[in-house]
């Protein structure tokens, strides 16, 4: 059984892993040598199924709950299980109630508990929601580590610009993400920032609710913070707009004024592939299986989609 995986973003690498683990000979092909062109590179890396339930259907919670364990077992040490903190500026505190009424798996915390959970935010917020069971990882480190693990496990990686002849493989898993030629998909542009400051320390992702512009701040190693992300119905890949930058910086600044002194290390733009229901699909057509439409849930739902695709492949193998 030889399987070709097209695309080395989070969908492709997780699929390659599940196929490799199941005993298939796997080749991953992505002509884009630079990972920074994949949507996954700009992900927040939050494994936050409870929070995502606020605007997503039940399956996102059900499938997403297994994500942290999958990443932990595949990349031991990569997952930080510190939960998620959801906060709102004082005058938007009504948003907390609304968010809470749409989600589960949290406890209400007051100013004192907040100070225990995130000491640097002490005195800045009077109440919040704490989703203890959630986790996060650094998506860039995870992509690199997963690829390295796959290489060690015998998976071949190709970046040659001319594609393989699909006929040479028993199965082709198409994980190429957003494409204008796929009429069912649309692109949802996301813009993010990487800030660096030693004046604030956070131990978990913090979501700041705002009626018009909710954002999250995810701590990363090296005193870095990922601030994201806009959601714009567009597949434009051009640089971040001034307005988006302003909104993201405003949010960071209102979480903690020390972010005003942070340096902007990077601005990034990715296009999330999405179907009209914003839920991913694994579709089989002959010996081609497509995993696509992960939307804003790449790291959260890719493991479940990868397992689904691998099950299709090995099921077929049994039949043959």
């Amino acid at each position: 059984m030889h399987v070709l995986v097209k695309g080395a973003g989070v969908a492709g690498l997780t699929a390659a892993h599940e196929l490799m683990a199941g005993g298939a000979a796997v080749t991953v092909h992505d002509p884009r040598r630079d990972k920074s062109v994949t949507a996954s590179w700009y992900a927040g890396g939050m494994l936050a199924p409870y929070c995502e339930r606020e605007s997503a259907d039940q399956p996102v919670l059900g499938l997403g709950l297994k994500a942290a364990a999958w990443w932990e077992s595949v990349l031991p040490g990569a997952v930080v299980r510190n939960g998620t903190l959801v906060l709102a500026p004082a005058r938007d505190s009504g948003e907390l109630g609304r968010f809470g009424s749409r989600t589960s798996g949290f406890v209400n915390v007051d100013a004192e508990e907040l100070a225990d959970i995130e000491p640097d935010l002490a005195g800045r917020f009077r109440k919040g929601l704490f989703f203890r069971g959630e986790a996060h990882l650094d998506p860039r480190q995870a992509l690199i580590a997963l690829e390295a693990k796959l290489v060690l496990s015998g998976v071949r990686f190709q970046t040659n610009p001319t594609p393989n002849r699909d006929g040479e493989f028993d199965f082709v898993i198409d994980c190429t993400g957003y494409s204008r030629t796929n009429q069912a998909l649309r692109g949802v542009r996301g813009e993010m920032l990487l800030l660096q400051t030693s004046d604030v320390t956070l131990s978990r992702p913090v979501r700041l609710l705002h009626p018009r512009f909710p954002v999250y701040i995810v701590p990363r190693s090296g005193q870095m913070f990922m601030v994201g992300a806009t959601m714009i119905e567009s597949d434009a890949t051009g640089p971040i707009t001034a307005r988006s930058m302003m909104e993201l910086l405003n949010a960071a600044y209102s979480l903690h004024p020390a972010f005003g002194e942070a340096v902007i290390v990077e601005t990034g733009v990715g296009v999330r592939p999405a179907y009209t229901d914003n839920f991913p699909r694994v579709e089989q057509e002959g010996n081609v299986i497509r995993i696509n439409g992960l939307y804003r849930h790449g790291f959260l739902l890719a493991p479940a989609m990868a397992m689904r695709a691998a099950a299709m492949v090995f099921e077929q193998e049994k039949v043959n």
Binding site: L185, R186, G187, R189, I232, E233, S234, D235, A236, G238, T241, T276
Partner: peptide, 16 residues
């Protein structure tokens, strides 16, 4: 403003 950032790129949403 929202759907058309970057020219004609909001086409998919618009056609919906």
């Amino acid at each position: 403003r929202r759907e058309m950032a970057g020219g004609k790129s909001g086409d998919k949403f618009w056609s919906l």
